[in-house]
Simulated assay, not measured.
Amino acid sequence: MTVELARIQGTPMAAELHIREHVLRVDAPVKEGGEDTGPEPHDLYDAALASCKALTVLWYARHKGWTIQDLKTTVERDASQERTGTYRLAVRMQIQADLTDAQWAELQRAAENCPIHKLMTKVTTEISTEIARGVP
């Protein structure tokens, strides 16, 4: 899968992010020279965790035949020590369901094992970057 980003001409920093058939607008906050017309990269990183945990819990419950009436996931970011190597994310999931204590514990384990959580905490990510001259 390829993710593509193209700058929106006439804006200081805004761009269109293309993921499969989906298009998202991304931008930088005003304090960083953007116009804040869309989420910035840290927002997308945090959102990846929130959505992965939610979808993992919903998938797990469905797989088990359990009914989830409602679900809300909130991620609070503390980036105050990011430059010294610590980026903190606190996730709170509010789930409306009629489950036993054992089932709640299973959902907790499922949420803690979502793929993005693992990528953020247990996997070594290797990134290569190439900058090419010219018009795309």
Results as ranks from 00 to 15, higher is better:
41 P>V: 11
23 V>N: 02
50 A>K: 01
38 G>F: 09
34 G>Y: 08
28 A>C: 02
48 A>S: 15
25 R>L: 11
57 V>Q: 02
38 G>T: 08
31 K>S: 13
53 K>R: 11
37 T>A: 13
37 T>Q: 13
23 V>C: 04
52 C>L: 06
42 H>G: 01
34 G>V: 07
28 A>Y: 03
23 V>T: 15
58 L>K: 15
54 A>G: 13
44 L>E: 03
25 R>T: 15
37 T>C: 07
32 E>I: 01
37 T>F: 02
36 D>S: 13
39 P>F: 12
51 S>Y: 00
48 A>G: 15
30 V>D: 06
25 R>G: 00
47 A>W: 10
35 E>P: 01
57 V>R: 00
43 D>H: 14
38 G>L: 10
27 D>S: 13
44 L>H: 04
55 L>I: 13
32 E>A: 12
49 L>I: 13
39 P>R: 03
49 L>E: 05
27 D>W: 09
33 G>C: 10
58 L>F: 01
25 R>N: 05
36 D>A: 15
47 A>M: 14
53 K>M: 14
27 D>N: 12
54 A>D: 01
40 E>K: 12
59 W>E: 04
46 D>N: 11
50 A>F: 02
34 G>R: 08
46 D>I: 12
58 L>G: 06
29 P>S: 07
49 L>M: 10
51 S>F: 04
25 R>Q: 14
36 D>N: 15
55 L>A: 05
47 A>R: 03
59 W>H: 14
44 L>C: 02
59 W>M: 13
26 V>D: 06
54 A>Q: 03
55 L>W: 00
47 A>H: 09
52 C>E: 06
41 P>G: 06
56 T>P: 02
39 P>K: 07
44 L>A: 03
26 V>I: 15
59 W>Q: 12
51 S>A: 15
56 T>D: 03
40 E>H: 10
42 H>T: 12
32 E>N: 07
25 R>D: 00
36 D>K: 11
44 L>V: 08
44 L>T: 05
45 Y>F: 15
34 G>P: 03
43 D>I: 04
50 A>M: 04
29 P>H: 06
48 A>E: 08
48 A>P: 04
56 T>R: 02
42 H>I: 11
55 L>H: 02
52 C>F: 06
30 V>W: 00
31 K>E: 14
29 P>G: 09
56 T>E: 02
55 L>D: 00
27 D>F: 11
33 G>Q: 10
34 G>T: 04
53 K>L: 13
23 V>S: 04
36 D>G: 04
46 D>V: 14
28 A>L: 11
24 L>T: 03
24 L>R: 07
42 H>P: 00
55 L>N: 07
41 P>A: 07
42 H>A: 02
26 V>R: 08
37 T>N: 10
46 D>T: 13
35 E>V: 11
49 L>T: 02
26 V>N: 12
45 Y>D: 01
30 V>R: 11
58 L>V: 12
57 V>F: 01
40 E>D: 13
57 V>T: 07
55 L>F: 06
